[in-house]
Structure formats: C-alpha cells, structure tokens
Design a protein around this nucleic acid. Structure first.
Length: 392
DNA sequence: GGATTGTATCCACCAGCCTG
DNA sequence: CAGGCTGGTGGATACAATCC
C-alpha cells in the first residue's frame, strides 16, 4: 500500500501492514515498528494508511485515466500520521531523506501497476533470477512479478516495478540495489541456500546509438574488450564495483599495462594487421602509403605486445617500461613524419597527373570540335552543290 | 569454432498528465 | 501552451546455451 499524503503524489511507500478492515475495497494499514524492522532505531513514526485503490483497480482499461478513476473516483492514499512533525514527514518535497532511509531497509514495499508486494533485498538477484518478490506467501522473480501484474509486455521490470514513487532503476542507480549477472551462481540467484557460487554483478550493456552507425563499429571492439575485462575482474575479485568507466580499468591495471592495452585496442579496432597486409598487397596503385602504414601498424602492434608481455612476465621496473614506451613514441613520431612526407609527395604527384589529364582532355575536346566543324562544312558544301545541280 | 536460437535487457518513440 | 515526467509498447541488441 502506498503511503502518501492526501495529495495525489507518491513520495514514499511503506511496508504492507496488517489489514484491519477491508470493506468496499478500502484498506486500512497499520504499520508496526516490528514490520518496519526499526525497533532499535528512532525512525519509526506511527501512521495509518487508507487506500481505496482497490475500488478503482482492476477495472480501468489501458486507455482510461491513468489516475485510476472509476465512476468518478480517484485512487486516494491517505496517511494519518501521529506525531508533531507529521506534515514534514509526508510532504513530498522533503521526503528524499526519508525515502533514502526506507530504501535502506532489508525489505522494500514495491508496486507494479496496482499490485503491491515486498521485495527482499537479500534474495534479489536479477530480473529473471532470484525470487525476491513476496506476494501472498508466494515468491516471484521481478520479471515474474511484472508479468503477474499484467506488464509482461513491458519487458522492463526496472521501470515497471516501483518503490516509493521511484523505479527500481533509480534504486540501482543509487546503489541501493545491486543486480547480479545472469550467469551469477550465488545462493540468491539459484534460490538455494546451499549454493556457494560467487556473486557476479550485472554490468550494463554499452549499446550503440541506433542511428549512429558511422562510429558505432569503431567502438564495438573496445566495448567488447572492456566487458571481457569486467567479467574477468568480477570472476576473480567478486567485487562491488561495476566496470562502467575507465577509471575502474585504471584501478585494475598498472600504468604500463593500461597504456599498452589502450593502444593495442585502438589499433585492433582500426584494422587488424593481417587484413591490412592483405589489403596492402592487393591494392594495385599508388599506395606506398597504404603499405607503409600497414607495416608500421603491424610493427607497432608487435612492439606493444612485446612491452605488454614483458611487463607481465618479467619483473622489470616501471622505469624500463617507460623507457621502452619513450622509444616507441619516438619511433611513432618518425613514422608519422615519414607518412606525412609520403602523403605530400603523393598529393603533388596526384596534382601533376590531374593537370596533365586536364590538358589532354582539353586538347582532345578541341580536336573533336575542329573535326566536327570540318565535317559539318563538308556536308554543307556537298548539300549546296547538289542543290545547285537540281535547280539548274 | 561458427551458426542458430532463446532470453534478458535496453532504447526509441508515443501518449497522457501535470505544472508553471 | 510548452516542457517535463511517467507509463506503455515494440523492436533492437547483447549474451549465453545449444547444435552441428
């Protein structure tokens, strides 16, 4: 039951208490400190919730008023709260701290459409795993609960299921809930207390923009690499951090490894060395630059791998790593200058060839015009001769 | 090891309501 | 009335399991 002020906003939900009266679809909830599991803290304030949503629920059609009107009635959640500061505790704008406090409870009252249930954090796994939603003495996964509430088509339990007026996505974003990966084999995900598998945390997908196909492919590879690294780190460390950002990567990698990995990743995304060499050999032109670039890229790749493997296998100091990286950067600079020189020469050659071609084309065009003119004159003179003969 | 299939998740888009 | 928010929907995408 949503415990809200008389106004129609929904600032906070409280655990379903004992129903002391269920008549005409109206429920009164009495929430005890024991149900809130706050016996030792001073967080509990006695409140009485009146909810007439049952009158309106179940009869509203999809296209009807979302405010759950039925026969002119709107869903009303009334909170009668005891205590001196009852207005502040239930007023919407000031409920953020209260909401956060309630959100930290081990069991959260949740709602999906018109169905209320309890979400037990310790049983929470992911959408399809971990029966953490308790509804009428039955346990469901979030996805099952979503389907049970008639929102199966939504396929979005994180937004469909709400706590205190906010979606579970918000709780996840704020770190209150930590969804596990689908491959997680912990006790909660397996619904088996005896399961001792490690907790594998869910990592959000790095999705490409649908219409942005130009640079999408270039990001794909690196994203995949990052995800692999995330999974590895989760498997090993069973840690709490998600691997969304590169800062996490920095934490897990030494400087040399990180730099080398980034360069290798970029290079692999650009073009693999093998395919590049194929391209270089098959291109017939003109392209000393292509082959040169290919060889440089290939060489760089090999050198970077050497550095990476050396830094991993041997116990060399970071100074050695930096020295090698410096050498490589010098080589790269040389290669850049070399490529630029080649590029300049190629451009000059291309300009020269273009001008020659234009001159040749102009000459051929003039020649064609002259020829056509001569042929026309010849045809005209022949016609006049014929005309004169016929008239005479 | 690659192709196929199924599941879970995410995203774009739309509609309706609320608020200033 | 415009802009923001919420809820709903369909489809795209990532990933894992399975098959060959």
């Amino acid at each position: 039951v949503d415990a809200v002020p008389v106004s129609s906003t929904v600032p906070v939900s409280l655990p379903v208490g004992s129903l002391i009266n269920v008549t005409s679809g109206t429920t009164f909830n009495v929430i005890t400190p024991e149900q809130l599991q706050l016996t030792s803290s001073g967080q509990f304030k006695p409140i009485l919730c009146v909810d007439n949503s049952c009158i309106c629920d179940g009869r509203q059609e999809k296209e009807s008023d979302p405010l759950r009107t039925w026969n002119g009635l709107k869903t009303t959640h009334i909170v009668i709260q005891d205590g001196p500061d009852d207005t502040t505790a239930t007023s919407t704008p000031n409920c953020s701290s209260t909401w956060a406090e309630y959100a930290n409870m081990p069991m959260l009252p949740i709602r999906c459409k018109n169905t209320n249930a309890e979400l037990h954090k310790n049983r929470f796994g992911s959408g399809g795993r971990g029966r953490c939603v308790k509804l009428a003495n039955s346990w469901y996964t979030p996805s099952e609960f979503e389907a049970l509430c008639g929102r199966a088509s939504s396929k979005d339990w994180k937004r469909s299921i709400r706590f205190g007026g906010r979606s579970l996505q918000t709780l996840i974003d704020e770190g209150i809930l930590t969804p596990h990966a689908t491959s997680c084999t912990c006790a909660a995900c397996c619904d088996d207390e005896s399961a001792t598998g490690p907790v594998r945390l869910f990592t959000p997908y790095k999705r490409r923009k649908r219409k942005d196909t130009s640079d999408g492919e270039s990001h794909n590879g690196s994203v995949k690499l990052k995800r692999l690294e995330c999974r590895d780190s989760h498997d090993n460390s069973n840690g709490d951090d998600s691997c969304d950002s590169t800062t996490d990567l920095k934490d897990n990698w030494t400087a040399g490894q990180f730099v080398a990995d980034g360069l290798v990743t970029e290079e692999v995304n650009a073009e693999s060395p093998t395919s590049a060499s194929v391209v270089g050999s098959s291109v017939t032109v003109s392209s000393p630059i292509a082959t040169t670039t290919t060889s440089i890229v290939s060489r760089t790749h090999t050198e970077l791998q050497d550095v990476e493997y050396n830094s991993l296998s041997s116990d060399s100091s970071m100074g050695e790593v930096f020295r090698k990286l410096e050498e490589m950067s010098n080589k790269l600079l040389k290669n850049v200058y070399f490529i630029r020189r080649q590029l300049k020469e190629a451009r000059e050659q291309w300009t020269l060839e273009k001008e020659q071609l234009q001159v040749q084309l102009k000459r051929e065009k003039d020649q064609a015009v002259i020829t056509a003119r001569m042929e026309t004159q010849e045809a005209c003179s022949r016609y006049f001769c014929l005309y004169n003969v016929t008239t005479i």
